[in-house]
Simulated scan of single mutants.
Amino acid sequence: MFPPGQGPAADPAGSHHERRIRSFQPRRSRVTAGQRDALLRLWPEWGFDIDGLGHVDLGALFSDPELPVVLEIGFGMGEATARMAAEDPDTGILAVDVHTPGQGNLLRLAERNGLRNVRVGNGDAIILLREMLAPGSLSGLRVYFPDPWPKKRHHKRRLVQPEFLDLAAGPLAPGALVHCATDWEPYAEQMLEVLTAHPGYENTRPDGGFAPRPPSRPLTRFEGQGLDKGHRVYDLLFRRR
C-alpha cells in the first residue's frame, strides 16, 4: 500500500515472527485521501513499524530524552488520544494500533493541532513490550476499551491477562500508572481480578475496586451514547510497584 519507509508496513514483524494467539484482528478498512496523505508525509518522522528487530530509543523518537512516555494500546481513530496529548503536552504518547485509517487520522489530528508529543506504532504491542522497549522506560500504560472477546471460547484472546501484566512490568517504571477502561462488565471483573492478584501492581483505590473516570481520560462520543443508554464504563487505575 505504501512505499518502503513512507508508511506503515502491512505485516511489520512478519507472519513467521509470531505463532501465539493474538488479542486483535487486523481490519482492512478504506484509507481516505487525507489519511493517506498524512501517512505518506508524517510517517517517516512520527511513525514506526513494530518489527521486533531492534530497541526503540524513546528519547530519540520524541526528540526529548527527558520526556516521560506513556504507551497507549489501541486508539481507534485517535480522537481521544489527540485530546489527551493536547491537554498534557509534557507527556509523550506512544500510540500503538494495527488499523491503518486510524493511524492516518491520528497523524492528521496531531499535525492539525500542533501536537509534537504523539508517535504512532504500527503492529503488535506484545512484540513492542517484549523485545523493543528498555526496562523502566515507560511512565504509564493505557488500555482503553480493548476487544472484550465476549464468547467464552475466545476469552484466551483477551489482552489483559497475567502473562500480559508480566510482560508489561519490565518496561514500566516503578510508580507508572496503568489505566484500563472497558464497558464490558465480565471483562472488567477479569481485569480487576488479574491486576489485584499480580504482585507487581497495586490498586490506587483504597477500597480495592473500580475508579471513577479521571478527567485525563476524555469522554468519547460513543462512550457518551452508551452512558445515555444506561451502560456503565469501568475504569481501573493501578500503579507499578
Rank of each mutant, 00 (worst) to 15 (best):
residue 74 G to Y: 03
residue 44 P to G: 08
residue 47 G to R: 09
residue 65 P to K: 04
residue 90 D to S: 12
residue 75 F to R: 00
residue 76 G to N: 08
residue 68 P to L: 11
residue 65 P to C: 02
residue 59 G to C: 11
residue 52 G to V: 11
residue 72 E to W: 00
residue 91 T to R: 15
residue 74 G to S: 01
residue 41 R to I: 02
residue 57 D to S: 10
residue 80 A to E: 15
residue 43 W to N: 10
residue 67 L to E: 10
residue 88 D to E: 11
residue 69 V to R: 03
residue 38 A to C: 08
residue 51 D to R: 06
residue 42 L to N: 13
residue 82 A to H: 07
residue 69 V to Y: 04
residue 52 G to F: 08
residue 46 W to N: 12
residue 94 L to K: 03
residue 73 I to A: 07
residue 98 V to D: 09
residue 86 A to N: 00
residue 75 F to P: 00
residue 45 E to R: 14
residue 46 W to H: 15
residue 49 D to V: 11
residue 94 L to Q: 03
residue 72 E to K: 02
residue 45 E to M: 12
residue 61 L to M: 13
residue 85 A to I: 09
residue 82 A to L: 05
residue 79 E to F: 01
residue 98 V to T: 15
residue 44 P to H: 13
residue 42 L to F: 12
residue 68 P to Q: 10
residue 67 L to K: 07
residue 38 A to T: 08
residue 49 D to Y: 06
residue 49 D to H: 06
residue 89 P to L: 09
residue 77 M to Q: 11
residue 58 L to H: 07
residue 95 A to Y: 04
residue 84 M to S: 10
residue 62 F to K: 01
residue 38 A to R: 11
residue 94 L to C: 06
residue 38 A to H: 06
residue 56 V to I: 15
residue 40 L to I: 00
residue 53 L to G: 08
residue 43 W to R: 11
residue 79 E to G: 02
residue 74 G to T: 03
residue 84 M to R: 15
residue 43 W to E: 09
residue 98 V to Q: 14
residue 76 G to A: 09
residue 48 F to N: 07
residue 97 D to H: 05
residue 70 V to H: 05
residue 69 V to Q: 02
residue 54 G to M: 08
residue 38 A to G: 05
residue 70 V to A: 04
residue 48 F to R: 12
residue 39 L to A: 04
residue 46 W to Y: 13
residue 51 D to T: 06
residue 80 A to R: 10
residue 76 G to H: 05
residue 70 V to Y: 02
residue 51 D to M: 04
residue 59 G to A: 05
residue 63 S to H: 13
residue 49 D to G: 03
residue 54 G to I: 12
residue 95 A to F: 06
residue 66 E to S: 15
residue 45 E to S: 13
residue 81 T to S: 15
residue 74 G to C: 02
residue 42 L to Q: 15
residue 71 L to M: 01
residue 95 A to V: 11
residue 91 T to C: 13
residue 80 A to F: 11
residue 69 V to H: 02
residue 57 D to Q: 09
residue 49 D to K: 03
residue 50 I to F: 13
residue 74 G to F: 03
